[in-house]
């Protein structure tokens, strides 16, 4: 009975840690992008200043009920997904509120937030929002398929739908799943490129083209909510990748190193790529990522 209180307290601390780490990673990505473009760039804590400023702005915008609820949907999704992902393995505090079958739960809950945001953006009546929403949902159709295939391959191969079981398997075998089921890893990483929405898959926000897409009518505190939910969600996704493919992390330093290494993949790919059009992005995901997803399924079925 006592252990559940540890887990709940740990989960609350996890949300705060996720907020701080996610915002720092975003700030570091702005810095690294600037250095690649031969600029000095903002300080790495610039996003904290932005968040503080956005939180202190007024938000006198009213388009209807769903418009106020949309950012809350995103926040709920981020917090729920960070709660079920075990952050530190073998730790009393930070194994978090996971349960048998949490991988399937994650597959569903990760789609919930964008759908809620789509309803909220639809009610603002801004044409940019509507275009952004349609693009976002089409792109989601693209990258969800290889992502689901990778996860289903893992579930088939090891006959479990629990993240903790997968971590335990990796620790028993002494081999990361990244090496023991490589095709699933490749499919998942390629799907991640779309999930993080960096260039060339930034067709949803699309700066200078769509005027930030679904969030174009959200200012002030709404934008703060979206920004913090994005950072928490980024942390949740990165930790999930580390848990699934990189053998989890036993302490915070190891976690930070591994998550940042994963985070560098979409970011660095983004800094050297121009933006795709919508149909090109979907075609991309239904090409090689889907192929590797099929290979992963075959690999899982045969071995």
């Amino acid at each position: 009975m006592e252990s559940i209180w540890y887990k709940i307290l740990g989960a609350i601390i996890t949300v705060i840690v996720a907020f701080i780490v996610g915002l720092t990673y975003m700030g570091l990505s702005r810095k690294i992008t600037a250095r690649i473009q031969n600029r000095k760039g903002p300080p790495f804590y610039q996003n904290f200043i932005d968040a503080l400023k956005l939180a202190s702005k007024t938000s006198a915008i009213h388009h209807g009920f769903m418009q106020h609820i949309g950012p809350a949907f995103m926040m709920i999704t981020s917090i729920m997904s960070v709660l079920v992902v075990p952050v530190l393995t073998g730790d009393q505090w930070f194994s978090n509120l996971n349960f048998k079958g949490d991988l399937i739960f994650l597959l569903y809950i990760m789609v919930f937030g964008p759908l809620g945001m789509a309803l909220g953006a639809g009610q603002t009546g801004n044409p940019n929002s509507a275009i952004g929403v349609t693009r976002g949902l089409s792109q989601m159709v693209g990258f969800e398929i290889p992502w689901v295939m990778a996860l289903v391959a893992l579930m088939m191969q090891y006959k479990t739908a629990s993240i903790v079981d997968l971590i335990n398997i990796q620790q028993e075998q002494g081999v990361w799943l990244m090496f023991s089921s490589p095709f699933a890893f490749i499919a998942a990483v390629l799907a991640m490129l779309g999930m993080f929405r960096y260039s060339p898959f930034d067709i949803v926000g699309a700066p200078t083209e769509l005027a930030s897409g679904p969030v174009s009518e959200n200012g002030g505190k709404y934008l703060f909510t979206l920004m913090s939910s994005n950072s928490i969600f980024a942390f949740a996704k990165l930790t999930l990748y580390v848990d699934l493919f990189l053998g989890g992390a036993s302490n915070i330093v190891e976690l930070l190193i591994k998550t940042f290494a994963i985070y560098l993949i979409p970011m660095l790919y983004g800094t050297v790529s121009p933006r795709y059009r919508t149909e090109q992005a979907i075609k991309y995901f239904w090409g090689w990522p889907l192929f590797f997803g099929f290979l992963a399924l075959l690999y899982a079925a045969i071995f």
Partner: peptide, 11 residues
């Protein structure tokens, strides 16, 4: 810290 904003709501 000067950055372009996309829409008047965010600026």
């Amino acid at each position: 810290g000067v950055r372009g904003a996309a829409t008047p709501r965010q600026a």
